[in-house]
Design a binder for these strands. Structure first.
Lengths: 342, 342
DNA sequence: TTCATCGGGTAAAACGCTCGACGGCGCAAG
DNA sequence: CTTGCGCCGTCGAGCGTTTTACCCGATGAA
């Protein structure tokens, strides 16, 4: 069966090639009557224009590249799911498709991130995969291609980004704990991303400069995967170092859940003995017992916004972008006033 | 900055257009000397051939469409992640890219699944998103396009598929529990997929026909999301109906974890009071306490194999495919002999 | 010496669509 | 009755590759 082309539609409908093309692209130049006649034939043959030909002629692939990290359990991370859903929603609504890539060693080594754009396979790129070591991204400085770092940023590099405001999260969290009277706090940080470092540093700063008296913060690394396991191990370490801690602050909810689990396993009550706080407000945070106090990061919104910005970059509406999205405190049962006499 | 084309490379290297093209496609026709001369220029300009033009001329997009379900927390399902990783690995190794789509209502309603292939945006489709209601897939019967159902199947429809052998899983699980002496078993089934139904029916059959005496199986639905929450609720229901159950069989590990959680909350020991068993062998199954006995489903392999089959379908090596992948029993601590006197 | 063969390269016709330039026609204004 | 202008539609020149013939010169056999 021969594949149909726009030519067949033209012949059958009695109009010219160009007319059919214009109809298919909803060009206002064409009258409703003509449009109807053409569409009738289009529908009759269930015709769909060849996208390669379209891409070639129009110089646009109507495709966005999305690069996700190569963590073993990457998909199990709700974090990513939310972002991708947001991106998908936005991209689809604008007629764009999503080309998915995983930032494997191979992907990086063969510079696929450049090829994708240079070969026009994708019109722009949303990079969710960066950690602190992604120096190769410097090729995107100076914006040779529409490129956005999603929920990450590199201080000092001129790379477009859309991210949650981790510094503000750190402040909200610190103020909450300090306000409850905590002065000996354990911090489980993520140090393999710049956003993680920003969070840590701002949290430490806020605790140091608290008007009602500085807090004593001990911090440890929660591991590169920001996982429950990592949080558990980090908590063990913290409590070993400082058994007198009254609060644990984890840089994300999953690590916080690990911390809570450690408390249960060691017969410590949350928040009576130790308060535990996370960041992100993942779905399960509301369901654990006690509910996890956290700072809400709207990752879906990050996805939406990144995609928006990328589209704007692509059609020249903006030249660069460095958005920080607001966060908000979510107080649940896992944090409480510092125990009397502690 | 003008975009370079193959023409520029031809001019600069002193060869013809066709020669450059042949070089770029590793055609044996060209001598090593020529190849080197051309590649030198290619590298000098960091040239990457336009993929739309390629696609148009070669009639292949070198892209595979992957459609995933529209569950709210779909990405948090390790199940999907494993499959996609497998697909990605295989596709990439063959020079194919992945076009990701989510089976939203919109996606279905606008028949994107057809458009994608008809417009040649993708050369083939891997459909992971099907549930029992996906009747619209009938358009793929008779193989108008390379299409494979991943880890699902529709009895009675001639649709290609690659799936884990759920019937064999059911038998392995049943034999394990029956062999331990259990005769009053609660089954948490998933009924929104055909594979789920196959599992349930085969499990019931195996229990009915057990040589050493049929078991009494009570089954309930675990909910459409096959989630921990669903498993928890289903367990509550089962234990309400039949407080004398000695074993709970869940159609996947996540529901089994929900069941174990219910036991903990109700001060029942696993497996001393009640044995609990799952299916899939997700990563966490080995880490819970006690370890979850389960039937191992190698979802990564399902991804690899589906992609393999799709590629074979695409280049005509096979005409259809209905693969069932083997499963194996994994015994951990959550199942034990039926309690004495019960 | 002649001629078939072959390795290695080239010319040029697709591939199927977009879009800017162009033009015919009818109607209102001059 | 011209002229000008808008509205609708058409012409046709690309877009950047792939790929099928075809060509040419060297080589070896007859």
């Amino acid at each position: 069966m021969k594949r149909r082309t726009i030519k067949d539609i033209a012949k059958e409908s009695g109009f010219s090639l160009s007319t059919v093309s214009l109809v298919l692209n909803n060009h206002p130049r064409i009258s409703q009557a003509t449009r109807d006649r053409v569409m009738e034939v289009v529908r009759k043959y269930d015709f769909h224009p060849n996208s390669a030909a379209r891409g070639l002629a129009s110089k646009s692939s109507r495709t966005l590249s999305v690069v996700i990290p190569n963590l073993s359990r990457v998909f199990s991370d709700i974090y990513l799911g939310e972002i991708i859903s947001g991106i998908y929603e936005r991209a689809t609504s604008q007629g764009y498709k999503i080309l998915l890539d995983i930032a494997t060693a191979q992907f990086i080594a063969s510079q696929e991130y450049t090829k994708l754009l240079a070969s026009r396979r994708a019109d722009g790129m949303l990079f969710i995969a960066s950690d602190i070591h992604a120096d190769y991204l410097h090729v995107f400085e100076g914006a040779p291609y529409p490129f956005i770092l999603v929920n990450h940023l590199f201080p000092g590099k001129r790379l477009n980004y859309v991210a949650v405001d981790y510094a503000s999260s750190a402040r909200l969290a610190a103020e909450h704990l300090l306000g409850l009277g905590h002065r000996r706090i354990g911090l489980i940080a993520g140090t393999n991303t710049h956003t993680g470092l920003i969070f840590r540093d701002e949290f430490l700063r806020a605790c140091r400069e608290w008007p009602a008296g500085a807090a004593d913060v001990t911090w440890v690394d929660g591991g590169d995967e920001w996982s429950q396991r990592g949080g558990y191990a980090a908590t063990a370490k913290l409590m070993g170092l400082r058994p007198d801690l009254t609060a644990i602050m984890a840089a994300n909810d999953r690590m916080a859940l690990g911390a809570m689990r450690w408390m249960v396993d060691h017969h410590l009550e949350v928040p009576e003995d130790v308060s535990v706080m996370g960041v992100d407000d993942i779905q399960i945070a509301a369901y654990v017992n006690p509910g996890l106090s956290t700072v809400r990061h709207d990752l879906y919104q990050v996805g939406i916004e990144s995609c928006n910005r990328l589209l704007q970059l692509m059609n020249g509406e903006i030249k660069e972008c460095s958005d920080l999205l607001p966060t908000s405190l979510v107080v649940r049962g896992s944090t409480g006033r510092v125990p009397a006499g502690k």
